[in-house]
């Protein structure tokens, strides 16, 4: 009797192990899909550059001498989103980091009922770029030219003043449509399940 009971306890423990090991959990209730906006982009810098005079340069320690000095901050952007004409998104985007000078990282999930949906997502720069006050004149050294080229590249790759996506998507039950950002084309991209059934 004791042996049978001991065996029964062991079997029940083993069964509990099996049951607890794989048991389903309904992680998403209902049939709603998601419009997921997930991308990273560099904000435009609002900066003022000027060339230091020879006298000013002489006052700077030798290892810190740079002819062109730039000061500024990263621009803020507004994020707006409408689905079937209904405002679903309205937010201000700032760069990451303590000084907000890093990349903008965005991740938003919008639950949407399945079907054909008109989707408008727009990002607009909120800060205007100040015109460059001083002409940088002739950049004489290689280093100065390289730094200016880098600044130019960063300006080119940054999120432009306005990016807009206006499209109609067909959203299946529990399907996710992903809105990303293509920095080369400076436009939003739309991706859905590649294995999606027709």
């Amino acid at each position: 009797m004791t042996r049978a009971l001991a065996m029964a306890v062991a079997v029940v423990t083993a069964l509990a192990l099996v049951v607890g090991s794989v048991a389903p959990w309904r992680s998403h209730q209902g049939t709603d899909g998601r419009i997921r906006i997930a991308w990273s982009a560099r904000p435009q810098r609002i900066e003022h550059c000027r060339q230091l005079s020879d006298e000013e340069l002489a006052g700077v320690p030798a290892h810190m001498r740079q002819r062109v000095q730039c000061e500024g901050r990263a621009a803020r952007y507004g994020l707006f989103g409408r689905i079937d004409g209904v405002e679903r998104l309205g937010d201000t985007l700032r760069g990451g980091g303590a000084r907000h000078e890093g990349m903008i990282h965005l991740l938003r999930d919008l639950p949407v009922a399945p079907g054909l949906r008109r989707l408008v997502v727009e990002v607009r720069r909120l800060d205007s770029l100040d015109p460059v006050a001083d002409s940088l004149g002739t950049l004489t050294t290689d280093r100065e030219r390289r730094m200016e080229a880098t600044r130019e590249r960063v300006r080119r790759e940054a999120l432009p003043a306005e990016v807009r996506l206006d499209t109609v998507v067909s959203l299946g039950a529990r399907e996710v449509v992903l809105i990303g950002y293509d920095p080369d084309g400076q436009r939003f991209t739309l991706r859905s399940d590649p294995k999606r059934l027709p």
Binding site: A14, L17, V18, G20, S21, V22, A23, P24, W25, R26, S27, H28, G33, R34, R174, E175, V176, V177, L178, R191, S192, D193, P194, K195, R196
Partner: peptide, 26 residues
């Protein structure tokens, strides 16, 4: 136990699909 209750593998992760029910190890 491993022979009596062979393990199966759940569908592959897919960021474009919200799984209705996920087989969870509690």
């Amino acid at each position: 136990l491993a022979f009596a209750r062979p393990l199966r593998i759940a569908p592959e992760a897919n960021p474009f699909r919200l799984a209705e029910s996920v087989p969870v190890d509690w």
